[in-house]
Structure formats: C-alpha cells, structure tokens
C-alpha cells in the first residue's frame, strides 16, 4: 500500500493542515515509509483471531446518570483566542 501525491494533498485538506506544494513529495515519502513499516504486520498469521479494538481485555466502565460537572463557562472559554458573553467566537462560518 502506498499513497500518491493527490492523496497526500487530500489528507492535508481533510485535516485542515496547510501543506506547501514543495512539501508534498517529502510528506509522500514519509507516509509511504510509515505504511511500509506497518505493512510488516501483514506477515503475522491471524487466522481465527477476532479483530481487536483494544489490547486490554476489558470492557467499558459505566457512569451513573448524575449531573456532576458544568457551570463553569468562564473557565471553559478562558483559553479561547476570542470570546464574548461566554460564547466562543470563531471566524464567520456560513454554509
């Protein structure tokens, strides 16, 4: 498995990461090296092994349905580059 330059541009765009055109071949090489490394896993025989989502043989812990958090809008927005009346402000987005 390997990626071409178009796929690299597409991944960058989906991830909202600005990638100068000159960096595309560099990134393509790095991604393909990573893919090649991971592909070694293909050599392991996994016949009869169920797909795993987690390496720990544990199930999800559940929490009771009780309100224990919130009511700290000022703290939640404290690190926002821009906020007003406890709203986050972001550059205008309209569909």
């Amino acid at each position: 498995m390997s990626v071409d330059a178009a796929t690299v541009r597409r991944i960058a765009r989906l991830s909202r990461i600005e990638l100068p055109e000159a960096d595309v071949p560099v990134m393509q090489g790095e991604i393909n090296a990573i893919l090649g490394f991971v592909e070694q896993l293909g050599e392991v025989n996994v016949d009869g092994v169920e797909p795993m989502t987690s390496v720990t043989p544990m199930a999800l812990k559940m929490r009771e349905d009780v309100v224990t958090d919130g009511e700290k809008a000022a703290l939640v927005t404290a690190n926002a580059p821009q906020s007003e009346d406890n709203y986050f402000l972001v550059p205008k987005v309209v569909e």
């Binding site: 939640v76 709203y87 986050f88 402000l89 205008k92």
Partner: peptide, 14 residues
C-alpha cells in the same frame, strides 16, 4: 453556532 450576531464572527455555544 449562531451566525447573525456579528458581521465577522460566529458565536459558538456547546
């Protein structure tokens, strides 16, 4: 997201 409060920004309430 609220878009009509400000000409330049959208307001976000989570």
């Amino acid at each position: 997201s609220i878009h009509d409060q400000d000409p330049l920004n959208s307001f976000v309430d989570l």
